[in-house]
Design a binder for these strands. Structure first.
Lengths: 225, 225
DNA sequence: GTATGTTTTAAACGTACGTTTAATAATAAA
DNA sequence: TTTATTATTAAACGTACGTTTAAAACATAC
């Protein structure tokens, strides 16, 4: 068969362990033992540990970026020339993530956690891989954001996009832990879908904030100007 | 002398390397070689690598939490019984961070990056240490946020606080890189202080968001409830 | 059924890690 | 100066890592 059972077993185990523990903290021996395959199988099928990491992301991101492109096509079609609103754009992204066919019920949370890790763990090779492979839908999303927030200066928009990415990446990357804490504190169960939908209004409101901060003297007079 | 030069050299090197590369990705040999001390010095002075990580955080957080408590005292004094507003609370936090005496000009960004790492790298021992040592000012900040957002349900408030923490930690932890990108793209110079002040209205607006998200069918009918 | 290419296996490779040791050097107290 | 403490050093410890090897098992085609 083209894709041996082994390849998928490795990907399944790796994806779960990476999401749980991070990349450096997960050894090939953990992966192969969880996948019940021989240690050498990873290097035989993938070439290296880094290549395995890329393969784990590709299995997620390739179908996701296709789904996302379709969602954007659909959105732009529905808007018929007019630029989609900020809420619509964010919702298109969120729904694409949430609606993605998942291998299991933990799929989304694993996906989000991996994305968060990719953002925060400074794995140079991974960042390079993602930029090379998936810059197209990312750029399109940025363009939509720009059209949806014409009132913002380029500088303001830049920083606020970073704030959005940060809120999303951090929350989603620790979503399991945060859900656990919430359950212990308030006895409330939650899901990744729910968190995502809570995020949208928060982000949208932040992007639209009009307040101008009064600069305290310490900053105004600081040499950094 | 009570604190040998060696101890501080190790802390300086460790703090910088941890911020750059993360904890697992930084070896004691990197640290001791950067600090120009013997490898065994870390275990002699700190006991273990984990204890060194704790010491790096303690050197930051102990004076910071004192500064923060004073800022909150001051704020509550100025408000005379009435609960401080959301903006005031966030600004007290931001100013405490920005005004902290720094060992060097990269101090704040290293501080933020380390906090971000503590959040995302699943180092159980570190989370436990931080919770045990600094729960007091953290709890006080949470209390102020609660008083400043009485309109939010406990669950909403919980998630929105996570979003705020994420936006802050992420942006500040990569502030150097992000400032560089902005300069290359738009030729605009910026400082950590400025970013912090841009963050406050974004976060405050997000916390105050009133939009209620329309749940798509896929989520409403999901078994996760 | 033999030959060919692919996959799996057990074992070992070399390297790097955190930690410990035991000897030496430096400092302070008597 | 001698003695007791503290700090530094070079070397080694045992363990775990990613990767490679070479033989065995398996599959497929002739």
């Amino acid at each position: 068969m083209a894709h041996s059972d082994t390849v998928d077993r490795i990907l399944d185990a790796a994806e779960e362990l990476f999401a749980e523990r991070g990349f450096s903290e997960t050894s090939l021996r953990m992966i192969t033992s969880k996948a019940k395959v021989n240690l050498a199988a990873v290097n035989y099928h993938f070439g290296s540990k880094n290549a395995l990491i890329h393969a784990v992301f590709a299995r997620f991101l390739t179908p996701f970026s296709a789904t996302l492109e379709r969602a954007f096509d659909d959105l732009e079609g529905r808007c018929g020339g007019a630029p989609p609103t900020l809420n619509q754009t964010l919702l298109a992204l969120t729904e694409s993530a949430v609606r993605m066919p998942q291998r299991n019920e933990r799929g989304i949370s694993i996906f989000m956690r991996l994305l968060g890790l990719a953002y925060t763990q400074s794995q140079g090779h991974l960042r390079r891989f993602l930029e090379e492979e998936y810059s197209q839908p990312f750029g399109r999303f940025m363009g939509l954001l720009k059209e949806a927030t014409p009132q913002l200066s380029a500088v303001d928009r830049y920083w606020r996009i970073q704030f959005m990415l940060g809120a999303t990446a951090f929350t989603m990357s620790s979503s399991d832990a945060l859900q656990g804490i919430l359950y212990n504190k308030l006895g409330v169960e939650s899901s990744v879908e729910e968190i995502a939908l809570r995020l949208v209004p928060f982000l949208a409101a932040g992007m639209r904030a009009e307040d101008q901060m009064v600069m305290p003297a310490s900053v105004v007079t600081s040499p950094a100007g």
